[in-house]
């Protein structure tokens, strides 16, 4: 019958219209500024820099290796190395960035920087309400705007942050074990050397021989 298809369609629309008053599945609109959907844990937006501890400048994990700057597809990262060094989480002396800028108007949130970073220093944020009245300076984030604490990272991506912490702790333990082993080996070698030095030279006292005094 001509028109039956249209009637069928109208019934469907009516069912959806009436259904929207009673059925959760059919009323899907979220009144955005007033209500918000909870963010997914994996959701990502622009990157930020992670620091450990309380002092951001001291605890910044970034060592200014510039890998992310090189790999960033739209080239939105800009880094200048500092000449002064500071210890990282293992205790090794590392460089730090003097300038670390990200141009958000260029960044496309692809998270390649996060993947290539070998130091777990740069991670993705979930902040998305970043509109500003200044198109230029307002969207250029400096090191001071970018650094956020490890606690914040734990808050936004708990699973991922826990994994990262575990990995870092493991590396640290390994480094410590290695340092300890190294120290022991060194001590042992030194002891052996001393023993060797002690055996062939019949010294009456085990006291260390005084260094020969250089004469001018």
């Amino acid at each position: 019958m001509l028109g039956s298809g249209i009637i069928k369609g109208m019934v469907e629309t009516a069912r959806n219209f009436v259904g929207s008053y009673i059925d959760e599945n059919r009323l899907v609109t979220v009144e955005y500024p007033e209500e918000r959907l909870p963010l997914k844990e994996a959701s990502r937006n622009f990157p930020f820099l992670v620091y450990d501890g309380d002092d951001a400048a001291k605890g910044l994990r970034c060592v200014a290796c510039q890998i992310c700057e090189k790999e960033c597809p739209p080239q939105c990262i800009y880094i200048i190395k500092d000449t002064a060094k500071k210890p990282d989480y293992i205790g090794k002396m590392q460089l730090q960035p003097k300038v670390f800028d990200i141009d958000l108007s260029v960044c496309m949130s692809c998270q390649i920087c996060v993947e290539v970073c070998p130091f777990e220093a740069i991670k993705m944020d979930t902040e998305y309400e970043l509109s500003t009245s200044d198109r230029f300076e307002g969207l250029l984030l400096h090191k001071e705007d970018l650094w956020k604490s490890n606690q914040y990272y734990h808050k936004i991506h708990p699973t991922e942050a826990a994994e990262v912490d575990a990995r870092l702790a493991e590396e640290k333990a390994k480094a410590e074990a290695k340092a300890k082993a190294d120290a022991e080996a060194k001590a042992k070698a030194a002891a052996e050397a001393r023993a060797k030095a002690a055996v062939p030279v019949p010294a009456p006292t085990p006291s260390p021989t005084p260094q020969p005094v250089k004469t001018a």
Binding site: V28, K40, E41, A42, S43, R44, M108, S109, C110, Q111, I112, E115, M124, T159
Partner: peptide, 30 residues
């Protein structure tokens, strides 16, 4: 929208997923 929510939970983005890698995928299913 429901499927995009799935994508977001997996890849972190709804449309610009950037998920697959050479020889596999970036992250495992949550």
């Amino acid at each position: 929208e429901k499927i995009l929510d799935l994508f977001e939970a997996l890849t972190g983005a709804r449309m610009m997923c950037n998920y697959m890698r050479f020889g596999g995928c970036r992250v495992d299913l949550p």
